[in-house]
């Protein structure tokens, strides 16, 4: 028990946590880093600032997707009630769009103000005034969404590949990155040159945009649900194995190079990863509820939360990297402050 208590020390001394009793489907911070939010399977959002959590009713059903809004404060959320919402840091809800019976499964934004929502095969680009600027069609349902770092392009994953769209382009012809199969999640490297997807067959596929090179990373015992590039772009952290699997993207990698594996040994599946926004450090959550920080260079592991509160289903860093937000399948949510006292 002393080991467990020690594993919880950071949560107890530097965190606030609460049990909400509903699946945490996503976690995000406002761009100014002051307010955090967890999207929950009962349709509510659990907003939190330093003082503590509070619930906001948002969706009639499950809240499925959540991200920071384009501006400094506020969030975007999507639900299986077909509603795409803007949520202020104070918890006021504004409906941006309503899509009937279709689920709003993916949302994204960029600091330039762009908002995006994926509904079935359609991608909607919407501005801060709530006006739909583009409606982009895909050959099948969108399964992952990400803006590039500059906000110039947006990538949408679907069956048999990824479509890249220029946000401001007058002609709407996407660049198609093709690879046969079902792509289920997506990440874009910080230098905008690499797009990686997770696939149904427990493998990753990547494209280097400048050269057209394909990359294939396999060997996972389970599906990768979560992928995150390190700040430097040198590593791609992934879930789906009983360790945190980090693929090297420097020095000619990842092809032909073995991945770095951290925080293994317990025989428990890693379910979520989130790279730190400043340092080459990764937060990882496991199926037993354990959350750790792993320093990539030194391979040192720092426990953050002990097992026992449900499989980790969401992790998010504030933009300054001072705070980490955790959510689990059984409804536990916590935010932990890592800044110097």
């Amino acid at each position: 028990m002393s080991g467990l208590r020690q594993a919880d020390r950071l949560l107890e001394e530097r965190g606030i946590g609460e049990d909400f009793g509903a699946f945490v489907t996503a976690a995000a911070w406002t761009r100014d880093g002051l307010v955090s939010a967890c999207a929950l399977g009962d349709g509510t959002l659990a907003l939190a600032d330093r003082g503590g959590f509070r619930r906001v009713a948002a969706h009639d059903g499950a809240a499925l997707a959540l991200c920071a809004d384009g501006g400094p404060a506020g969030f975007l959320s999507g639900g299986d009630d077909g509603r795409f919402l803007a949520v202020s840091a104070a918890g006021e809800i504004t409906e941006i769009a309503r899509f009937g019976m279709k689920w709003v499964e993916h949302v994204a934004s960029h600091a330039s103000g762009h908002r995006a929502a994926a509904i079935g095969k359609k991608l909607y680009l919407i501005d801060q005034a709530g006006q739909t600027q583009k409606q982009l069609d895909h050959p099948s349902s969108i399964t992952g969404l990400a803006f590039d770092a500059k906000g110039k392009r947006i990538a949408a994953a679907h069956y048999n590949g990824v479509s890249l769209w220029f946000v401001a382009s007058k002609s709407d012809n996407p660049r198609r990155l093709e690879w046969k199969g079902s792509h289920t999640a997506l990440a874009w490297s910080p230098d905008n040159d690499v797009v990686v997807t997770a696939m149904q067959e427990n493998a990753l596929h990547g494209w280097r945009l400048s050269s057209g090179e394909h990359m294939r990373m396999s060997g996972y015992p389970a599906k990768t649900q979560s992928l995150s590039f390190s700040r430097s772009g040198k590593f791609l952290a992934t879930s789906g194995a009983e360790t945190v699997v980090l693929w090297p993207f420097s020095g000619g990698g990842p092809m032909g190079k073995p991945p770095l594996e951290l925080a293994g040994g317990d025989g428990v599946l890693c379910t979520r990863v989130a790279c730190h926004p400043v340092h080459d450090t990764v937060a990882a959550g496991f199926a037993d509820g354990l959350v750790v920080l792993a320093d990539i260079a030194s391979e040192r592991i720092l426990p953050v939360a002990a097992p026992g509160r449900g499989a980790v289903s969401a992790l998010a860093w504030s933009a300054d990297g001072a705070n980490l937000l955790i959510g689990t399948e059984t409804g536990f949510a916590a935010r932990i402050n890592f800044s110097k006292h």
Binding site: L40, G41, L64
Partner: peptide, 8 residues
């Protein structure tokens, strides 16, 4: 997968 995340 989405249905299994709902509370009800």
């Amino acid at each position: 997968g989405g249905l299994m995340k709902r509370r009800d």
